[in-house]
Write a protein that binds this DNA or RNA. Sequence first.
DNA 1: CTACGGATTTTCT
DNA 2: GAAAATCCGTAGT
Length: 206
Amino acid sequence: MNSQNILDREFYNRDALIVAKELLGKLLVHEINGQMISLKIVETEAYMGIEDKAAHSYGGRRTNRVEVMYGEPGFSYVYFVYGMHYLFNIVTRERGNPQAVLIRAGEPVKGLDLIAHNRFGIPYEKLNKIQLINLTNGPGKLSKALSITKELNGEDLCGNKLYVTEGEKETFSIVSAKRVGIDYAEEAKDYPWRFYIKGNTYVSIK
DNA sequence: CTACGGATTTTCT
DNA sequence: GAAAATCCGTAGT
């Protein structure tokens, strides 16, 4: 509703490590057909680009898939993995510096019935305890819950369809941990570049 | 509770 | 032809 506090291009024009931490607690919003889905970001990972062996853009690798990472900050990078999941990232740093932040988990805030329907095909109130936790506690699940697919690759997050806002002001502790699912990345696989809100239920791996 | 394997298809070599 | 920034269900402790 209030477009005043949508995060701007400059917010994203910083190192992925900084943006990843600052995105925690912010509100990720997707407006579809006049309806709004939103969730609080509770877990992120930084991918630092050319020098990060875990990044798709490592070593300056430049294919069709990663092209958007080389563009302006504040755009979405959505890609498909394991034959069935879309993962949602936000590009950071200036054109030519291909960094991104993977949004790994969130806490449902608005559009609960839409989220429940996207994930399990039933209304929110019919979800059991296990389903409630599993709505948005992982990067693939989060994309499914928000209806984020390849069509939203390259979307400008400084627009009014898919964007991030300040959200509620609150205090929390940030935990740093190893990133997930990057065993191929040699020494980079142990870098503590995953960040999450301490104690939050929706964090994928504590 | 943890551990494991199958699913499924795009992307890159 | 192999690997993939994952998820889910089942089996075992």
